[in-house]
Nucleic acid binder design. Structure first.
Lengths: 209, 209, 209, 209
DNA sequence: CATGAATGAGCATTCATTCAT
DNA sequence: GATGAATGAATGCTCATTCAT
């Protein structure tokens, strides 16, 4: 019988989430100990279990939240009118700048989604995958729309195109945010808009662009 | 002869490595129990420690081996003469076909390197990172060579280009091998050569290609 | 407040210490299993690690405590004024009676210090040694004082004298407490004061005394 | 059915015994691994079990051998005629010199008997105790003989006297051989005859002597 | 709501001993 | 006689979770 969520101090909850996210992003799922999380949040061990059903549930929740925010960012890139090729690159560049800026401001979340989630157990890995599926779907709509507007060459393999595109974006995102060592504290030499522009150019024109 | 490695039955060793790789690829580092590995290999708990110093050492060894094989595959793509743009796409397509074929035949190894390594502890994560750094370096040489031969536009940001390229390739590799769920048993609908060709086209000409 | 020792129920702690000391004194370091200790203390395995960092740390702590108590007992024997030879024997007899009474009331601790500590690993053996070095130093001061007061013949080999004296005392202590079998439950036929007196006589006058 | 000891190469046996003794003296019973012993002796793991029933049996044998040698040394001190007090000290000094010389030449054995034996399991500790009981008995005869010859004051507590004497001797022996840290490689500044003489003086005359 | 001591299943690793070759 | 790979029981320690206060 899952009773309605009991009364909780929302600030406490956020404290815990932030502490957890920080440690998860840094050490990964299995190396993140509840005892460290509560210590960082300044509450007791028991309190954690007042706010979250379990370690796994917390992470699942974190991922779910992240998914929604991420989709929201991409959804804003949906194209309404046709335009020139350069328009397209600029528009994509703008979308990616939003995405990269969001990612930069939510490094820990991105670390969890891009990297650390893979080290966890099946339910968590599945939640992470669902996130990227949703992410890919959002891009798929955008590509399809561009094809409908005659801005991109038609392909009968839209999913593959979208797939490759998402690979490119998540790949770039990972390295830009976390460097070769996947270090959350890594500081790239590129600004969000720079890396976004470069990625967008590559997106449309590849190495020859 | 360093540190007196005890004499070992090479078959046993391979048995153990294969069992370990299979489970590691499927469950990740922390969820892989030595007890499961030895059960799968049909030997006793103690036998594992006759062949490997520790769980961590085994994985480190696996990764080191994988790195070498991987680099070997890429190194064969080094270009000797200039050629047309189409030559270049074909040549890259061939290299990627080799890479993707290798990856397909070493799914478990690739799972470890691409995905599961992140769930492990620092020394292992570092070894994985080193692998991808070496991988990127190999591509960097290839790109630079192509620029020297006048086949690719010169850029003053070679590292970024290589970076983005590697992101693209590893991203595609992950999704192609392991699908949306990062499942080692995932079977893609694309053959290695197909995905390689598509990736190579994207590599040079992007979405507009 | 160093290193945030977690708050602990002092009674539990004592329960565990007593259980551990009893088993350590009886079986020695390596044969003392944490599982036996917690069973004897009536708590769970994990509880042990709430109170102590590790098996080794517990024993180290036990030894450190023991050292302090032991030194305290001896320090009270420091002589202020000169006296006759008989005074000296009586005074030493009194000191040894204190020591032997203390030892009798802390048989397990003494077993650890006198006998069982040797079976353990280096850090513990060293801690035990340090205890006896401190013990010897305490006696050295006492002898030196007696020489300064002209009560003992001057020797230019004070350390050797102190050494032999401590050997005598610890030797007697071991045998008196634990008998020929080094059995912790061995009950000597001599009262602390008897053995102390006899030892004191021997101390000053040897077999001829 | 204990068959007659199978044919064994006596040199191998000695090799093993010496290697074992060296390691036992240094690391103690529990920290001495058969694998280290055979490595030091240059034979295989299995060979050990051709020569010795078990680790425990080997040590038991070592102790038994040691006991016999030790008793032999002391037995030579048995007094035949009366003499002056100085005779007595000299005679004891000679006996102790023999003992200390033997001990110096058999440091590893002495380490096992005096120190490391205590860390082992019950059967071994018992064997060690039996050794010292025999040792004490030998001294008891010597003291009794001296009393019969009127060289020592009669006491109705011969056992206690012998006991204290043995404590003195073993205590001095331990410290002289192994120092405060019970280190087998410890080198005392005193020659066997010096420490023997000093001990003998103390034996008869105590601190006042 | 909060606490934090207690729990106990779970895991990597060790090492004396065995036995097929 | 000798070998050394294989065995597996045993143990110290971890950490998510619980629950009495």
């Amino acid at each position: 019988m899952l009773a309605a969520t009991p009364k909780q101090d929302p600030e406490r909850r956020i404290q815990l989430i932030e502490a957890a996210l920080k440690i998860l992003a840094c050490k990964g799922y299995h190396s993140t100990k509840i005892s460290d999380v509560v210590k960082a949040a300044g509450v007791s061990q028991g309190t954690f279990y007042w706010y979250f059903q379990s370690k796994e549930q917390l992470v699942l929740e974190l991922i779910e939240d992240g998914k929604e925010k991420l989709i929201e960012v991409i959804a804003q890139g949906y194209r309404k009118h046709a335009g020139t090729e350069d328009d397209m690159v600029r528009s994509s560049s703008r979308l990616l700048t939003h995405l990269f800026t969001f990612a930069d401001r939510n490094r820990e979340l991105m670390a969890l989604l891009l990297i650390k989630g893979q080290g966890a157990d099946t339910p968590i890995r599945e939640a992470v995958s669902q996130t990227w599926i949703a992410f890919e779907d959002a891009f798929k709509s955008n590509i399809q729309r561009a094809m409908e507007l005659g801005m991109l060459p038609r392909t009968n393999d839209l999913p593959l195109r979208a797939n490759i595109l998402v690979c490119l974006i998540t790949g770039v995102l990972s390295k830009w945010l976390f460097g070769p060592m996947n270090d959350v504290d890594f500081k790239s030499v590129y600004a969000p808009s720079e890396i976004a522009e470069e990625t967008a150019k590559f997106e449309f024109r590849g190495l020859l662009g």
